[in-house]
Design a protein around this nucleic acid. Sequence first.
DNA 1: TCTAACACTTT
DNA 2: GAAAGTGTTAG
Length: 600
Amino acid sequence: MYDGTFLFRLQDCERSSTSTLYVSTLDFSTLKFSISPVLHPSSSDIGNRERLNLGSLRRIFRSGSDGTSGGCAGFFWENRAAYLGNMANGGDAFGLPDRPDSDPDSPKDNKNENPPIRSRPASPQSTCNQGMEGVKVFLHEAELWSKFDEVGTEMIITKAGRRMFPGYKVKVTGLNPKTKYILLMDVVPADDHRYKFADNKWSVTGKAEPAMPGRLYVHPDSPATGVHWSRQLVSFQKLKLTNNHLDPFGHIILNSMHKYQPRLHVVKADENNGFGSKNTAFCTRSFPETAFIAVTSYQNHKITQLKIENNPFAKGFRGSDDMELHRMAKLQGKDYPVVPRTAARPRVCSSGSPYQGEPRALQGSPGGPRSPYPCEGRPRGPPAHYAAPQHLQHGQQAYHGTKRKAEDGCAPDDRQHLYKKPYPGGSPEPYYHPASYAPPLSGHAPPGPSDAPYSADVGQRQACMFASPEPRLEDLGWAYACPLPPSMTPALHDYPPYSPHGPYSSSPQGSRLSGAAHHGSPSLGEPLAHAPYQTQGSAGQDPHSRRLTPPPPQGVLPLPPLRPVPPALPHAGGPRPPRQGGGARVELRLLSRPKPVDLG
DNA sequence: TCTAACACTTT
DNA sequence: GAAAGTGTTAG
C-alpha cells in the first residue's frame, strides 16, 4: 500500500541571513520542486505555499553554494508511505531476506546470544549509477572509527540532539570539477532488532521499535561544484542525533538501543540532472565501521573511555598520568587509595576504563594491531569480531587519545589531530582513510589516499543542521509529500533486495531518495499529522547478519506540538541549588568496578 | 531507560 | 566571555 509519497522539508540553515525557511517538497513525478518559502521563521503563514520549479531550487542552492546566504541545511525526508505500507502489511512485510551471509554459528533468533553489534560487510557499501561510478568517498579518521567499531560504537542521543563522535567526515574524489553536487547524509537502521547491553556485551533483546521518521541531512554547502567538494574534507560533524520523535530541529531521529548505519549520498545537481528525476545521478557510500547503537547513556565503558580519550570536549574526564599509573597498578593487583575525582581534578582518572591494563605505550605501537596511524599501509580488515565479548577485546583497546587540537579534524588547524601527529611533514593533503577499509568493492576500490599525508591548511566544511535560530513549530511541523525516483536508490548494497511489500524494494533509505518516482504523485500539502508508525518486520532476521538488512519503513510522525521551551534555570541571581549530579567525578565508582582485564 | 543539572571543555 | 559540546550523576 505504498502510496509513493515522501515528505520533504528543506530548511535554510543560514542563521545569519534572513532565516528564510524553505519548506519544500520534491515532486519527482513532475520534477517540480515545490517550495514554500516561509519568509521568516516568525512567519506563520505556512499556508501560503509558493510553488517553484526546480530551477528555483537550483537558484536557492546556487546562492548557498556561492558562499552567499541561502545555503540549505536541514533537508530531510519523512517517508509516510513507507510506514503506511508496512502497516498495511502487518508490519512484517519488509521482505527482509534471510540471512544469506550470516554467521552460521550465530543464533538465528536468540536474544540471549551474543550477536555482533556490527553488521560487518566485507567492504564499504556503495552504490552509484550512471555517471557517478568514478566517485570515491574516503572516510576520515577511519582508524578511529574502527577503534570504536571494534568495541561497538555507541552514540548518545538526547532530546536536544547530540553530535556524533567520531564525527562523520569524508573526502570525496572523482567528481566532475564543474558539476554541482548535493551531499547529504542519512542514518538508517542496520537491522530490526532492539539491543541490550548486559554482561558486558550487546545482545538482541527483541524486535526494533518502529523506525523514526527518516531524515536527510544535507550538507549546507550543497549544491556545490565537484571541485568545491573535492578541495577539502566534507564534514557532517554538526549532524545531531535525537531520540525526540517530535524533534523540531531537523535532527536525525533515532531509537535508543537500536543499531544504525550512517550513509552518505552524493547527488548530481547540475542542470541536466534534475534532482529526483529518473535519471538522477547519485552515489551512496556507507562505511560499516561507522555503524553504531544509539543510546541515551553509554553502556559499554570501553566506548566511554574512547570517547573521553578522543573527544576534546571530554578532556576534562581524561585521566592524568598519575591516574594512569594508578590504573595500571590496579591492573597489576596493587591497591591505591581512592581519590575523588573532584579532588583530583582536573587531571582525573578516567572512570571505568576498560583499558586499565593497557599502558599508553601501546598506542604508539605502529606495528600493533591497534596502531593509531592509518597510513601505515597495513591491511585494514574489519574488526575480527564484533560479537566478541568486550573482555576479549581488552587487548585491543589501546587507543589513547593524545592531546590534540581541533579534534574536528577538518578544521584548518586540524593538522594537530592525533592521527596526524605521525606526519610532521604535514602534507597539504588531509589524510583520508580509503573507503576500502575492508576488502574493496570491485570497481570501487579507492585509490591509496590513505597514504596521503595530512592537510595542513584545508578547511573543513561544516554541515549545518538547521536553519532557524529558534525554530518554530509552524516552521517545521509541516511538509509536503513527494515521491522519489527509483533511479536514486543508493546503498543498494546496504540493503539487499527484498520483496516489494514496501517502498524499500531496493533500498529502504535510498528509496527515501528514490523508489517513489514510479509511485503516485505526491500530495502536496498533504497533512502529515497522525500518521502512525509502521511496525517493523523482519521475522527471523539474524542479528549476526554481516550485511545490513533493509531498514523498516520510516514513519511520519505527527506534527510536533508546540513544545514550551523550558525556562531558564532558576539559578540566575540566586544561590545554586545543591548539585544533583554531573561533574561529581568520583573515583570511587571506577575503582569499585570489578572489571576484569584481559591482558592476554 | 531516560532526563536534566552539572563541571569542564573547546570553539 | 559566551556559546556550545562533553561525560557524569542523581533521580
